[in-house]
């Protein structure tokens, strides 16, 4: 399956990339998507989304999903 991964704001700078792609052969959770993509540990306050909806780190990903990681939001 193919998973696209996106990083925003300070996490993009920390990871050093705005996007990545994974083609895992085994089922993965969002947490595992991070560890399969990044060489650094995930910051504690990281938020994540699948297909633009907030999810928990334990959520399983599916073929074609867009997984996003970002820091706490600061709009308004």
């Amino acid at each position: 399956m193919t998973i696209s991964v996106r990083f925003f704001a300070s996490l993009r700078e920390l990871v050093g990339s705005s996007e990545a792609s994974l083609e895992p052969t085994d089922p993965l959770t969002v947490q595992q998507v991070w560890s399969n993509t990044c060489t650094i540990a995930m910051p504690d306050n990281t938020l994540c989304a699948i297909n633009m909806e907030y999810v928990d780190l334990s959520q399983a990903v599916k073929d074609g999903d867009e997984v996003a990681f970002f820091p706490p939001v600061t709009g308004g």
């Binding site: 925003f8 704001a9 300070s10 989304a49 907030y54 970002f70 820091p71 939001v73 600061t74 709009g75 308004g76």
Partner: peptide, 9 residues
């Protein structure tokens, strides 16, 4: 919006 909308400054 302040607590959950994905914007960053």
């Amino acid at each position: 919006l302040k607590s959950r909308a994905p914007f960053w400054k």
